[in-house]
Structure formats: C-alpha cells, structure tokens
Amino acid sequence: MSDEVELKLTEDEAWVLFDFVRRYSETDRLSIEDQAEQRALWNLCCVFEKTLHQTEDIDYQEFLAQRRDRLRDES
C-alpha cells in the first residue's frame, strides 16, 4: 500500500461523515439526507486539496487510474 495521509476533521465532521459512509455501506446508495452531510463533504474536499500534492506534468487520469488499480480488491 502507498504512503499514509493524515487528515484532521472536527468531531462533528467525523460523526456526520461516519454516518454518511455507514448508511452507504448498508444501502449501496449515496444520497445527501441533511445539509450537514454536504458541508462535511465540502470540508473534506478542502482538506484533501490542502493535503494531497501532485506534480503538474502528469496525466491526471492515468495517475488516478493507477491509484484506483492499487486500491481495488484483488479478483
């Protein structure tokens, strides 16, 4: 597995995101049920933008495809 990334969330964000992901795990449906979930996802996106760094001279789609391949369950 690749290097680890550490993210900082507020406890409120963590609980709201936990419930959002738990609900998805149980239903296989992604849906915003409360505006707080949307806010928590926007905040998480901002954290990712500040945390993840990529070089500008890469093919982003290929870069992301490689990450997805490494993360998938083995068949």
Rank of each mutant, 00 (worst) to 15 (best):
M1E: 09
M1S: 13
S2R: 10
S2L: 08
V5A: 03
V5G: 01
E6V: 14
K8F: 09
K8H: 09
L9A: 01
T10E: 02
T10M: 00
T10A: 02
E11N: 12
E11C: 08
D12F: 09
D12N: 13
E13I: 05
A14K: 14
A14Q: 13
V16R: 02
L17D: 02
L17M: 00
L17N: 01
L17V: 01
F18N: 07
F18E: 06
D19L: 08
V21S: 05
V21A: 10
V21D: 04
R22F: 12
R23F: 02
Y24K: 10
Y24Q: 09
S25H: 13
S25L: 13
E26L: 13
E26C: 06
D28L: 08
D28M: 08
D28R: 14
R29V: 13
I32S: 02
I32Q: 02
E33Q: 09
D34T: 14
D34Q: 12
Q35D: 07
A36E: 12
A36G: 05
A36P: 03
E37R: 10
R39T: 15
L44I: 01
L44H: 01
L44V: 01
C46V: 07
F48R: 03
F48V: 02
E49G: 08
E49Y: 10
E49N: 14
K50S: 09
T51M: 03
T51A: 01
L52S: 04
Q54R: 13
T55A: 07
T55E: 12
E56S: 15
E56N: 14
D57I: 05
I58G: 02
D59V: 14
Y60F: 09
E62C: 00
F63D: 04
F63L: 10
L64F: 12
L64K: 08
Q66C: 04
Q66S: 06
Q66F: 03
R67A: 11
R67N: 08
R67W: 07
D69R: 06
D69E: 15
R70N: 08
R70A: 15
R70Q: 11
L71I: 06
E74C: 06
S75R: 13
S75T: 12
S75K: 12
